[in-house]
Write a protein that binds this DNA or RNA. Structure first.
Lengths: 345, 345
DNA sequence: TTGAAAGCGCTAACAG
DNA sequence: CTGTTAGCGCTTTCAA
């Protein structure tokens, strides 16, 4: 059976088609379509009309190759199911909106190897900049970024060494501040509930800072519980139950994020545990969801929107790496005491 | 003040550099890097070593232009803050993972104009396919998709006319099924709480189907309440309160999504309203969060993961548009009665 | 204000 | 198994 060659009758349109349809050189068409250089109104109108009629869509691949510039910003984050990251994205999009730059999102699932792959893939499109979460990367990833010749912004965390610029908060300090507030409120037998993900360095740093803060007051974490996967709200419930059944004497639980904290809170309300007198609770992130709970959980805002905005501003305002030295922007999270920490005594 | 020309000493590496470093032709280097064609192990090793040593990152812009193929799939969704969409994305990523195709996400904020812009932008990168939410688009957007010469999959909704392929559920039917279940359970004075977004066609269709289902039993929506923006959980509380204070005689509330439904549920629990005897409740989507609530909210699963998977499979398995006719895959959402609808009588 | 020529960095197609 | 040649569709640069 002979193979019939498929004639591609649907070749997509090129500048040349618009040029022919409008009787204007390709170069001028290109100028019109990009709003570059002076073109007479008459010519401009003819070109625009022809392009619209034909349904021409420019080819950015060719454009990017010729101009050596691409209006893409690579944004690499660990996850989309943790609402924190979509919020950072919102901040980034807001700022990039009116710069002609476009964010392109890659997700790593908290895997350094996956991060390396995604980064490689994205760099191969020669973006104008990279924004990525965290300061911990494989050596290869660091090397790629250092050699890319474009601005790199590491976000969400400032506790460590940056490749170029960095925008975020100190999670270590956030944990410590929370510990101090708790101790000041008179809590003494303190437990921790968190995620098990070995690569969530920010959660780890918060816990370390927290433990350190307790240590300053001569206290320590009495017990802790870790999880991975599943509904965070449900896990919060379950782990709180497990922790309290093991250590009914605890008077405070610090959660590594608001979702599991909310689960713990709902559990306590169910069981009639007196919050915050008998047991205090606190989470982290300041997620919107908390507003809808029966009792407002204590938390600390991670400045997600602001982090996104500042990172995008750096990319938008900077030429190639090295043009200006990397910036370091540390934001300060606010403690929102809510109703689950009793007043300091 | 004279402008000092910035010498770009950091030119990024090209195939030629690898070619020179390894003493092998550019073409062969290209073959090695893409795993195409036969190359001797010795040559391959030399090339790989040179590429790695130099830190070469291929230029996909040039590659795409030369090969006329790009391994990108445009995914266009209304929002990232509604957890539904990240879940669809997960399904898409899962399938694309081992096809060499890469999803690129664009967000429209439920604006048809923005959708058109995003689509245009994405098509200008000549992706291998497009997956986008919904069946309602501007005429220009439809035209672009019809002319793109690549597979297009519209997802999440099947109530309408598709450009090419479609994968989703019938929201109209989902609403109707819920109405029937509620009527069968003996509820008679029914209210609705939903989003105001004029462009959330799926929510609209659910409500229409719901009203239609009630009509079949000679019933109608007694009252309704709409919102936009803010914490969905909190809005659910507030709107439930507003609705019930206006119509304390209602015996059921249908929510347009699980988040506001959960808010309503928490409100009822707070107020000691007897659910489901005195008042029944139901939401929509089957979000994971519900597992953590004190009482399981009735809902209907929107098959988000499955929708994403099937859509990606269509793109991955298909050549240019027209090669095969568009597919139509309608999934059937399950009613999950939870604990907020009383048993049918 | 407009046009012509020369690539951008890579790969398809063919030749050896 | 390896190399050569000729573009891909656009923009840069220079000339008119």
């Amino acid at each position: 059976m002979a193979t019939v060659p498929r004639i591609d009758t649907r070749r997509t349109l090129t500048l040349r088609d618009v040029s022919e349809a409008s009787g204007v050189s390709e170069m001028t068409v290109s100028r019109v379509l990009r709003n570059r250089g002076d073109v007479s109104t008459a010519t401009r109108d003819r070109v625009l009309k022809a392009a619209k009629t034909l349904g021409y869509v420019p080819n950015k691949i060719a454009g990017g190759l010729a101009s050596q510039r691409v209006n893409l910003v690579a944004v690499i984050i660990p996850s989309l199911s943790n609402m924190v990251f979509p919020e950072v994205l919102t901040g980034i999009s807001e700022v990039l909106e009116d710069t002609g730059l476009q964010p392109v999102v890659g997700v790593t699932n908290y895997s350094p190897e996956r991060e390396e792959t995604v980064l490689y893939e994205m760099l191969s499109w020669r973006p104008s900049g990279v924004i990525l979460a965290g300061l911990e990367h494989t050596d290869a990833a660091r090397a790629m970024m250092a050699n890319a010749g474009i601005p790199i912004v590491e976000i969400m965390d400032v506790d460590g060494e940056a490749v170029d610029s960095v925008v975020g908060i100190s999670h270590r300090r956030a944990g410590m501040e929370m510990a101090k507030a708790i101790v000041a409120a008179g809590y003494r037998r303190i437990g921790f509930v968190g995620t098990m993900m070995p690569h969530d360095h920010r959660a780890r740093k918060r816990m370390e800072g927290f433990a350190e803060g307790l240590a300053l007051a001569g206290l320590r974490l009495e017990d802790s519980e870790f999880y991975s996967g599943g509904s965070a709200l449900l896990k919060g419930r379950e782990m709180t139950e497990a922790l309290l059944s093991r250590r009914p004497d605890l008077d405070f639980i610090y959660y590594s994020n608001d979702m599991i904290g909310a689960g713990g809170l709902l559990y306590c309300l169910d069981k009639g545990i007196d919050v915050p007198s008998r047991l205090g609770l606190a989470g982290f992130n300041g997620v919107e969801l908390l507003d809808g709970l029966p009792v407002k959980l204590a938390t600390m805002d991670a400045c997600r929107l602001e982090v996104g905005r500042r990172a995008a501003e750096i990319i938008a305002g900077k030429g190639p790496t090295g043009a200006t030295p990397g910036q370091r922007i540390e934001l300060t999270p606010r403690l929102e005491p809510g109703e689950t920490i009793r007043a300091p005594r």
